[in-house]
Amino acid sequence: MAKKTGGSFLKEAGRGPALDAKSPFAVSGLTVAYDRKPVLWNAGFAAPEGELTAIVGPNGAGKSTFLKASLGLIPKLSGEVAVFGRPIDEARGDIAYVPQRSSVDWDFPATALDVVTMGLYRRIGWLRWPGRRDKERAREMLALVGMEAFADRQIGQLSGGQQQRVFLARALAQDAKVYLMDEPFAGVDAATERAIVDVLKKLLAEGKTVLVVHHDLETVPVYFSHVLFLNGGTVASGPVTETFTAENLQKTYGGRLAATQLAALHEAAGMKT
């Protein structure tokens, strides 16, 4: 994504390109405040279609808030969101959101299969029960994340990583065009990490657009093609090869990243500092 220049002092101070009608997921001028303290200020971003974008930034930079407020899950003070140029409320079916863990009651009487089937509810429609076809489809999704053996297990009896995979399978079942994931890699075991990577690859192969809030800077150049730097607002965004630079990392993280860390990152990215 090309950055906008113009008569401004800092290019990244602006909103980014305004509501790109072609972008699968475009946010502009997003401001969110808790108790009159802005967590996000004037953030903007247009997701490139068919690409895998990492959203990075320090703790409290407003990464989760960015996703939640764009989806209308928390109130925003200002800002516009468009999905392929349409308002988000008309495009719910195009968007799948995988929240950070632990927001549900794990003791709830539901099996892994039940949870994945929920991803199909919108398609099934009101007043209808999930049929055999739906259950089969949900089972296929579970198989994709290596969880078919646990289909009838109550969700609270799964390990954290397994639960995460079930939620991923639920998102797959939605068959959306845009996937928003909030820290899927946080605290997962190796098997789950592999499953997540496989899912991301599969989504990309199908031409989906994916945004992932990501914590581990070292793996950004490994897994992702694009990056969005957030710190209370958009700092920079673009292809990893151009945008994942020492300058932008410094701007986003300030003094929080030691020089040695930066050097290691750039080595990982195969770039010169």
Partner: peptide, 21 residues
């Protein structure tokens, strides 16, 4: 917030989308 965002949009020659702004 809206005033500031609106003026920033003016400075950057970007369209102003929200009615309140």
């Amino acid at each position: 917030v809206h005033l500031r965002q609106g003026l920033l949009a003016v400075a950057h020659d970007e369209p102003i989308l929200e009615p309140i702004t």
